[in-house]
C-alpha cells in the first residue's frame, strides 16, 4: 500500500520562511508609507480651512498664524495647465510619428532613444535647463510660464511613452479595415486609431499631469518665490503649491510648519484627484465595454 509522501521538512521550512519574509517586507513597507499619509492628514487638517484655501501669504509676518496657499494653488493650476497645453500635443504627435509613420526608420529609432534618455532627466536638471536657456540666455524673468516650460520637459517623454503604448495596442485589423474603405492614413489615425485608444491615452496624460503637479525642484529654479497672488503666469514670480510646502517647511516657526502640512495635504488631494480621474476615464471609456 502506498501513501502520499509528505514533502521534506527542509522544503517546507524554506517555503514557510520565504512566506514569512514576504509578509514581513510588506509590513515594513506599509509602516512608513501609512505613517506619511497619516501624518499629512492629521497635521494637515489643523490648518486646512477656508482661510488657507482663499488667502495668500501677503502681509503675514514671520511668526504670524493664519495666511494661506491660495496664491500657490492658483499658480500650480496655471503652471500645470500650461505645461499640459505644451507637452500633450507634442507628445501625442511624436507617439503618432513613432507608431504610425516612422516604424523602423533611423529618425524614429533616434527619437525613441532620446525619449528614453529624456525620461531619466532629473527634475532639477529640467529646471536648470529652463533657467539657463529661458532666463539667463534669452533674458526672460522668472515666471509661471518658465515653470510650465520646465514641467513640460518632464511631461513630454511620459506622454510619448504612454501614448505610444496605447497606439500599439490598437489592432492592425482596424487600420487595414479603414484603409480598405479608401480612407486616407491621416483620417484613419484621427478617426479610428485615436478614438480607439482614447481612454488609454487620457489615463496616461492624467498620470503624467499628476506626476508633474507635485514637482518642486524645477519650480524653485524657474518661478521663484512670492507671497502674493499673481494670476498672470507670463510675468513675474509666481508661487506653486509644492514650492509653498518647501518654503514653509524651511521656516522655523510652528505656524509655518502647520501651513506646510496643510499645503502637503492640499497637494496630495490634488494629485489623488488627478489619479482618480485617470482611473475613472480608463474604466468609463474602456473599449472592451463597447462604449
Amino acid at each position: 500500500m502506498t501513501t502520499i509522501q509528505r514533502i521534506s521538512p527542509n522544503r517546507r521550512f524554506k517555503d514557510r520562511l520565504v512566506q514569512f519574509l514576504v509578509y514581513l517586507s510588506f509590513a515594513i513597507a506599509v509602516v512608513p508609507l501609512v505613517a506619511v499619509l497619516w501624518m499629512v492628514i492629521k497635521n494637515g487638517l489643523a490648518r486646512f480651512d477656508l482661510e488657507f484655501l482663499t488667502h495668500s501669504m501677503r502681509n503675514i509676518g514671520a511668526t504670524d498664524a493664519g495666511g494661506g496657499a491660495y496664491h500657490a494653488i492658483v499658480g500650480t493650476l496655471e503652471q500645470v495647465l500650461l505645461a499640459s497645453v505644451i507637452s500633450v500635443p507634442i507628445g501625442l504627435l511624436t507617439a503618432i510619428y513613432l507608431v504610425e509613420y516612422g516604424q523602423g526608420t533611423r529618425l524614429s529609432r533616434a527619437i525613441s532613444f532620446f525619449v528614453d534618455v529624456m525620461t531619466g532627466i532629473p527634475s532639477v536638471v529640467s529646471g536648470l535647463f529652463i533657467l539657463a536657456f529661458w532666463i539667463l540666455v534669452l533674458g526672460f524673468s522668472f515666471s509661471g510660464f518658465a515653470g510650465a516650460l520646465a514641467l513640460s520637459i518632464l511631461m513630454m517623454p511620459t506622454v510619448v511613452r504612454s501614448a505610444e503604448e496605447m497606439l500599439l495596442l490598437v489592432p492592425n485589423d482596424l487600420r487595414e479595415a479603414s484603409y480598405a474603405l479608401g480612407v486616407p492614413k491621416w483620417r484613419t489615425i484621427t478617426k479610428v486609431v485615436l478614438p480607439t485608444s482614447f481612454s488609454g491615452i487620457a489615463t496616461g496624460v492624467m498620470l503624467a499631469i499628476a506626476r508633474v503637479a507635485g514637482e518642486t525642484a524645477p519650480l524653485l529654479l524657474t518661478v521663484f518665490f512670492t507671497d502674493s497672488i499673481n494670476t498672470d503666469p507670463f510675468s513675474g514670480p509666481q508661487m506653486g503649491l509644492p514650492l509653498f510646502v518647501f518654503d514653509q517647511a524651511t521656516r522655523p516657526t510652528d505656524t509655518a510648519i502647520d501651513r506646510a502640512w496643510a499645503g502637503a495635504l492640499t497637494l496630495i488631494l490634488i494629485v489623488m484627484l488627478l489619479n482618480l480621474a485617470a482611473r475613472l476615464i480608463g474604466w468609463w471609456r474602456s473599449p472592451a465595454k463597447g462604449r
Partner: peptide, 8 residues
C-alpha cells in the same frame, strides 16, 4: 479574415 468592426 476576422470580423473587424470599429470598436468605438
Amino acid at each position: 479574415q476576422r470580423p473587424n468592426p470599429f470598436p468605438t
